[in-house]
Simulated scan of single mutants.
Amino acid sequence: MSERKKVLIGLSGGVDSATAVHFLNASGYEVIGLTLKMLPDAIEKACSAGEGFRVCCSKEAVMEARICAMKLGIPHYVINCSGDFKDKVIDYFIEDYLEAKTPNPCVFCNKHIKFKYLLKYASMMGIDYVSTGHYADIKYSGKYGMKLFSKPADADRDQSYMLSMLPREYIDKIILPLGPYAKSETRAYAEKLGLIVANKPDSQEICFIPDGDYAGFIMADEKSRGKIKPGNIATADNKILGRHNGLINYTIGQRKGLNIAHKTPLYVIKLDRERNEVVVAEAEAAEKKEFFVKGINWHPEAPITPGYVYAVKIRYKHRETEAELTPLDGGRAAVKLHKPERGVTPGQILAVYDGEFLLGGAVIE
Rank of each mutant, 00 (worst) to 15 (best):
I90H: 01
I209L: 06
I304A: 02
K192R: 15
H299R: 03
E282N: 07
G360D: 03
N276E: 09
K139P: 10
T305L: 13
I240W: 00
L359Y: 03
H299Q: 09
I174P: 01
A334K: 11
I209P: 02
T19N: 06
C68A: 15
R273Y: 08
L118E: 02
G242M: 08
P105H: 05
K339I: 15
L271Y: 03
E277F: 11
N25Y: 05
V335F: 06
I138F: 03
R187D: 11
A20P: 10
E277R: 11
G145K: 11
L258S: 03
V312F: 03
E290I: 14
I252M: 02
I218F: 05
K317N: 14
Q204N: 09
S141D: 09
G331D: 07
I240Y: 00
G330D: 13
I175S: 00
G246A: 10
L24V: 13
G179K: 00
D91N: 12
S48A: 10
I94A: 02
G145M: 08
Y316V: 07
R225T: 12
A236M: 12
P75Y: 06
E320Y: 06
Y121V: 08
K59T: 13
D87H: 04
I314Q: 00
D87M: 12
K288Y: 08
E284R: 06
A69E: 04
D272S: 10
E64L: 15
I233H: 00
S27C: 08
V21L: 05
Y92V: 14
V7R: 00
T35K: 00
L119N: 07
T326G: 01
S17M: 09
L247W: 02
E99Q: 12
L325A: 04
G295L: 07
S58M: 07
K192Q: 14
S150D: 05
M1E: 12
S184C: 11
H76L: 12
R255M: 15
P303S: 11
I260A: 04
S17C: 13
